[in-house]
């Protein structure tokens, strides 16, 4: 099942801008990660090393595997090949250091819980079996709610919130996890302008406190302003590095407009491996 890594297969080297000083333990290290749904690869040969304290935007067209990448990185999907390390440890062992903001549509907002209950769920991972949230956990949850300016809504049922408010609740829950590495799946989708500003301010604040954040983002124009590091993704890593170096016409063309280019490159590699696959 081990695929040869793309580099060894004479694929033209992708621009892979190295960031971070050598010797530092990466917050997230992904090596030769391949994920497939029913034989069809969604991610292919992903290599990635994210140094701490970065705010990374994951950008790419629809179906590029952005959400899949963060789910795979958290070990929620079976990998066809490759491995993931978080702070130098296998991801299973370091889940406590990971915070997660799923897509807002992934849950049923009619669920009978209050805003406070949802944020408290962020504390659950640290509690362990048989333990209930304590006063300290409630305090943390309140602080996190206050940070996203949702404290007045703490006792509301979650369906009585606007889209932006729901997203803030999810963000507060992630904050309550008190993690070092955050994965966020489209936190800006369908939120109002005020929430968008509030979220990005919060993300910058977290980054400045040394946290690492990987944020799936679908809006290219704002990506440049929001993130200090960008990961251009389209089934493969097209480019990864400082925003000002990566946000270039050529690379974006390759990510979005250049869908065909990438496919033909891959087709080329598959063809060269010979035997096992036929290229029409």
């Amino acid at each position: 099942m081990n695929l040869p890594s793309p580099e060894s297969a004479s694929l033209p080297a992708t621009p892979h801008i190295n960031c971070g000083s050598p010797g530092e333990v990466s917050s997230l290290e992904v090596h030769d990660l391949t994920v497939a749904y029913q034989k069809k690869p969604v991610l292919w040969g992903i290599d990635l090393a994210v140094p701490p304290g970065r705010l990374v935007g994951i950008v790419g067209p629809n179906g590029a595997g952005k959400s899949t990448l963060i789910k795979a990185a958290m070990g929620m999907l079976p990998l066809s090949s490759g491995w993931v390390k978080v702070f130098g440890q296998p991801v299973r062992k370091s889940l406590r250091r990971i915070g997660y903001v799923p897509q807002r549509e992934s849950v049923d907002w009619d669920f009978p819980v209050s805003v406070m209950d949802v944020v408290l769920m962020g504390r659950y991972g640290q509690l362990g079996l048989l333990r209930r949230p304590r006063k300290r956990d409630r305090e943390i949850a309140r602080e996190c709610l206050d940070k996203v300016k949702m404290l007045p809504y703490a006792n509301r049922q979650i369906s009585n919130l606007s889209g932006g408010q729901q997203q803030r609740v999810f963000l507060a829950r992630a904050l309550a996890q008190e993690s070092d590495l955050y994965f966020m799946d489209e936190p800006f989708a369908g939120v109002d302008a005020a929430t968008e500003t509030a979220i990005i301010t919060l993300l910058h604040e977290l980054r400045d406190r040394g946290k690492t954040l990987l944020v799936v983002h679908h809006d290219l124009p704002t990506a440049r302003d929001y993130f200090d590091t960008l990961l251009l993704l389209n089934m493969r890593v097209v480019a990864f590095g400082d925003t000002d170096k990566v946000f270039t016409h050529d690379l974006l063309q390759k990510t979005y407009g250049g869908r065909l280019t990438i496919l033909s490159e891959v087709a080329h590699v598959v063809g060269q491996r010979g035997g096992s696959a036929k290229v029409p």
Binding site: L95, R96, I98, S106, M121, Y124
Partner: peptide
Amino acid sequence: FVLYKEFLVTSFDEGFARASGF
């Protein structure tokens, strides 16, 4: 009584629950 929070978090948001190690 004992597994209330586990049942709750996996029912509400399975992805998040798994990401938190449940």
